[in-house]
Design a protein around this nucleic acid. Structure first.
Lengths: 156, 156
DNA sequence: GCTGGATATTTCATGGTGTCAAATAAATGG
DNA sequence: CCATTTATTTGACACCATGAAATATCCAGC
């Protein structure tokens, strides 16, 4: 399971090395979020709106699926899409295959915004610039080990 | 500067390796947050409340300082402390040195809660369990390179 | 000492995010 | 055809967050 899996958060004495890594990750997480919000704000979007718009830019998506990716209740997505819709960045379409579902889709303006957003989100590149290709390869492999088998794709 | 430093988020073609690392970090960030919220929820706290309680467990803290650590407006802290206070986890004290400031402090119950919280927050240990000591050392060094000089401490 | 400007906190209005429960509509399987 | 399940929305509520304005206090300079 994940980082917080209760079954594995044992009572072993936390060794200093592990604690150091944990703290480093905490720092990275804090920066990542802070800067993600800032990037979104530059386009007058909240973090949630930016995330959803990013999802939509991959193609029309059922409301339910968005909720799953965001790990929140479907009723919450309604509001987020509402706000994107009133700003002309997204629209609702009917799914011809199943009349219960509504597909949220990015409008052209929405796609543009998502593109510009992705541009300013090249961010995590910056700190990696200080690493050689060899170092980045090692880092990737270690992170992969940490993350485990990729059965779910990130919504960020 | 930080991860999102606009001066360095250049227009170079993003190489696939870097993108992969970025995505992995995104995954870790998402998990970290999700599981932090869950851990807080187990103690009937929101993420923000858990963070503040963690801060308070280090000692009485002026409202202003809390806002700085959370990187939010002071007026926001008022509400968070209010809610912790009505639940008997925190209290406001007057600063004898400066009668303008109020010190938020964890009550005994608040300290207990913070301790239990810290316990369930050993989480990031779990995914590191799969790494050997040697691997963790390499990971630490690479992350250190990424994070850069530690001039600010994380509030998470 | 007094006064003017800075500082710390709170209050109020407002908006976004999130949950839960209930309503509606449509699919699906007996 | 009917009961059940599934997808979405609505409404009520709590929390987080901001910004502007009010209050109280400090502090510097006169």
């Amino acid at each position: 399971m994940g980082i917080l899996d209760p079954m594995t958060s044992s009572n072993e004495p936390p060794d200093p090395l592990t604690l150091e890594v944990v703290e480093l990750i905490g720092t990275i997480v804090a920066r990542y979020h802070e800067e993600y919000e800032q990037a979104a704000a530059k386009h007058s979007l909240t973090g949630a709106q930016a995330r959803v718009l990013g999802l939509l830019s991959r193609g029309p998506t059922p409301m339910r699926r968005i909720a799953q990716q965001l790990k929140c209740e479907p009723s919450n997505v309604t509001g987020i899409i509402d706000r994107l819709e009133t700003r002309g960045l997204a629209e609702r379409r009917l799914d011809p295959a199943d009349r219960r579902v509504k597909l949220a889709a990015a409008t052209d303006r929405g796609k543009e915004t998502a593109d510009r957003l992705r541009g300013s989100l090249g961010f995590a590149r910056a700190p990696l610039a200080g690493l050689s290709e060899r170092e980045r390869t090692v880092l990737r492999d270690l992170l992969k080990l940490m993350v485990g088998p990729d059965d779910e794709l990130p919504a960020v």
